[in-house]
Design a protein around this nucleic acid. Structure first.
Length: 351
DNA sequence: TAGGCCATCTGGTCCT
DNA sequence: AGGACCAGATGGCCTA
């Protein structure tokens, strides 16, 4: 998991660590102090440690040498050539060791739970959050990294970023399904993504842009991820007919393709813009529950800006006047505490 | 069924 | 000595 992430960027230290470890193992073989735990472990483990212990005779000889050194000063009498090594593994000792191990396991479990809840918190503050369709740990970390980078770029340049480049930044290094998910959250499906780039070459600022990324290999003509497949045209139309907008439109003006055109076949993921989150609740079926609930945070946007109420936006960019409290999807999570930050960010997206 | 992701157990290492 | 942290091993679950 995390190890994999770090090993991607720093393989050499890992190799070095392994080399050190193998050296240490040789030293450990002559270390009497660990013999009691190892004897316990022999029953259960088959890992590298026990593999090294398979050279039983060799190990015993080394241990004996240590034993001899240690006992010489204590007593003149030499220990038996083949006796118990040090302290015998009595029943009480085994019991204590077992308890110690159980306690350590419990602590480790708690530690991992803490780590996971921290990751859950991180999932909630990155641009794509769904309670039911969680990003994997590694993808969460990658997306968070990209998100931080994108935000700092916005702060650094002080300009409204190009959306396509923004999405590319967010999606850099992410898997295709996650990329689709993020793009879906941003109301950018693959087709839209590509046409944006091809039709408006000037919008992609190239390698010298503050959001310069290598062009993302957005190759799918349909969204492969289940998340994005769930965004059916029908539901898109339903939402639109109710005056709900696509986030991209509401954020950046009307740049959407012709939804009625047969040429436009890529599914949409039209999240609602409510209180700085984009989310969708279109169907109560379990499958839809699983797939439709996305929140998008970076665009807190117009939420509660003027009236203190969260408003939805129509596709024309005008407020629909529908109050969010009447429409909050059950799976949506509102982050009021981050409103000030979103207001700041909002300034870049709504001039 | 293979591969990805995850939780858990475990032993080693470092730190207090 | 005990706890925190780390990484390897393992098995379960899910999905393409």
């Amino acid at each position: 998991m995390l190890t994999r992430l770090f090993s991607e960027t720093s393989l050499m230290p890992e190799v070095q660590k392994f080399a050190n470890w193998t050296d240490d193992c040789e030293d450990d073989l002559s270390d009497q102090g660990e013999s009691e735990d190892k004897s316990l472990q022999d029953v259960h483990t088959e890992g590298s440690l026990s593999e090294s212990k398979e050279d039983g005779d060799l190990v015993e000889e080394e241990e004996e040498e240590e034993e001899e050194e240690g006992t010489e000063e204590v007593e003149g009498e030499r220990p038996k050539k083949r006796g118990p090594k040090k302290r015998k593994m009595t029943k009480a000792r085994m019991e204590r060791s077992k308890v110690r191990r159980q306690k350590a396991n419990a602590r480790e479990r708690n530690r991992m739970h803490d780590l996971n809840s921290a990751l859950d918190n991180l999932r909630k503050v990155v641009p794509c959050y769904s309670k039911t369709q969680k990003l994997s740990k590694i993808e969460t970390l990658r997306l968070a990294k990209n998100y931080i980078w994108a935000l700092s770029e916005i702060l650094r340049s002080g300009k409204r970023p190009d959306l396509v480049a923004y999405v590319q930044t967010l999606c850099k290094g992410l898997s295709q399904p996650t990329t689709n998910l993020v793009a879906g959250c941003l109301q950018l499906n693959s087709r839209n993504f590509l046409t944006e780039q091809s039709q408006e070459p000037g919008r992609y600022h190239g390698p010298n842009s503050s959001f310069a990324m290598h062009p993302y290999p957005y190759q799918c003509s349909r969204l492969s991820g289940s998340q994005c497949q769930s965004s059916s045209m029908a539901s898109s139309h339903a939402l639109r007919s109710h005056g709900y907008c696509a986030t991209y439109e509401s954020l950046y003006g009307n740049t959407s393709p012709d939804y009625n055109s047969s040429e436009y076949e890529a599914p949409l993921s039209p999240p609602l813009c409510i209180n700085g989150n984009f989310a969708v609740k279109q169907d109560s079926s379990p499958d839809h529950d699983k797939n439709y609930h996305y929140s998008m945070h970076y665009s807190a946007l117009q939420a509660s800006r003027a009236s203190g109420h969260s408003l939805l936006f129509s596709s024309s960019g005008m407020r629909s006047g529908v109050h969010s409290e009447n429409l909050l999807p059950y799976d949506m999570h509102v982050h009021h505490d981050r409103a000030p930050m979103y207001e700041e960010l909002n300034a870049f997206f709504h001039n």
